[in-house]
């Protein structure tokens, strides 16, 4: 299963309780109320455990985490050891 499918499955199971109909790859989690302020923690834990990556504090920005596509792109770069978007000024 590709990264994006695995993450989609996690989101559908944990935040949408099985309701996958409306979730598109580009959809913003925050704008569409899919993940709330405490749900972000769950997502990070899942990514770190499932992909054995360490996500730095300054990588926790919407550009990396706010949609299936953003997460997937972020993960790909992370797993390839490439540079990823970080918090401004850091």
């Amino acid at each position: 299963m590709s990264n994006i499918d695995t993450i989609r499955e996690f989101v559908v199971e944990n935040f949408l309780f099985g309701d996958s109909a409306q979730l598109t790859d580009e959809m913003s989690f925050l704008e569409n109320g899919i993940i709330d302020s405490t749900g972000i923690l769950e997502m990070i834990t899942f990514l770190e455990e499932n992909y054995k990556v360490k996500i730095d504090d300054d990588e926790l920005v919407p550009e990396n985490l706010d949609s299936l596509m953003n997460i997937s792109a972020f993960l790909d770069k992370k797993l390839d050891g490439m540079s990823v978007p970080k918090e401004e000024g850091k």
């Binding site: 925050l30 709330d36 302020s37 972000i40 923690l41 990070i44 504090d57 926790l60 920005v61 919407p62 985490l65 706010d66 918090e87």
Partner: peptide, 11 residues
Amino acid sequence: NPRLKRMLESF
């Protein structure tokens, strides 16, 4: 949790 600052601010 300072890690979540940016995400929460976006929220």
